[in-house]
Design a protein around this nucleic acid. Sequence first.
DNA 1: GTCTATATTGAGATAGAC
DNA 2: GTCTATCTCAATATAGAC
Lengths: 199, 199
Amino acid sequence: MAKRKKTDDRRRQIAAAAGALFAEQGVRATTVRDIGDRVGLLSGSLYHHYKTKIDIVHEIMGDYGEDLVARYDRAALPGGTSVEKLRRLFQACFEANLEHPDEEAILIRELDSLFREPEFAYIHETLSRIEDIFVGVIEEGIRRRELRADVDARFVYRMMMDVMGAVPRWFDARTHDESEVVDQWIETFFHGIGLENEA
Amino acid sequence: MAKRKKTDDRRRQIAAAAGALFAEQGVRATTVRDIGDRVGLLSGSLYHHYKTKIDIVHEIMGDYGEDLVARYDRAALPGGTSVEKLRRLFQACFEANLEHPDEEAILIRELDSLFREPEFAYIHETLSRIEDIFVGVIEEGIRRRELRADVDARFVYRMMMDVMGAVPRWFDARTHDESEVVDQWIETFFHGIGLENEA
DNA sequence: GTCTATATTGAGATAGAC
DNA sequence: GTCTATCTCAATATAGAC
């Protein structure tokens, strides 16, 4: 029992070190020797814990999708206006980036490269579920006449996701206040940057 | 003279083939053998025309920055309201994507990987000049009271650039009408998706 | 200017001793 | 469970014949 636990600790330690490197440099640019150095092992010893380098990526990302969908699901729960729901969705994005920065960075970084491989199809299924959540909230807002009737929900979702997807590239909790960012996003997406008397 | 021209043709042919591959798969994932296959040469023969694989990337991207900055500069020329200028800037983005799809795709794809290398610093200088153009237009709009006084120009620029940077990932001139996309961007950024009576 | 052939390096992975 | 040592393969790049 105690022995089993220790093995898992080592696995987690390797996954954590690898995750930080993958997030920073990308999976392809990170060598098994880099990972070994970080945890104080020779590269060959990693293979006692994982069958391949890609298996480490699966270990890191495999369960993360559920966590992420659950966050957005919770944010979209009934309660409040459409703006309030959108705000909760944006906040969920930041919480994910704060609590799982490596996973978020890897998700975005590898989306158009490694995660195009068929074995990572589950990543895209996760994103598709998140898209449905956003689109559901936006379409409900249109039906409730809280959002403009002429907005294309999938189109607006894409704009929002493009903006949220850039968070790992610039966000630093030490220099940014996430609630201010969420405020600005809400202001811009909901009210726009134009002055009314110019419309 | 005719001979010199032929040599340049070969260089351009190689750069074009490599550009398409770089845009699709990324520079790192594209091998010199891939490139050779595309132009009907053995990989070794490429080295008669270019010293290294990375030199081909420089050939493709080296002059493109000027082209891009010139486009955005022209779009920001005096004339019209701030919305009209923003519309012209968005249109410039689409024209760039239509006329130089490979360059745009490579620019975005490699921004956080290959283009972090010091030898590609000129790419970031180009982007910095484009940022200044956008920020200039937005700040002018605020001074003219055409845009809200409380918008943070750099922040809004980042949102816009994040949205524009995703264009190479989904835009297909055969299925999308770029002027419709520009319309939606302008509507969303300028007026927002909210209904006035909800504000 | 292109080909044949090969040098060189780097990276993922394995075998077997400890 | 880790190390030593090494295999294997793929990729960039080079040398010299044609």
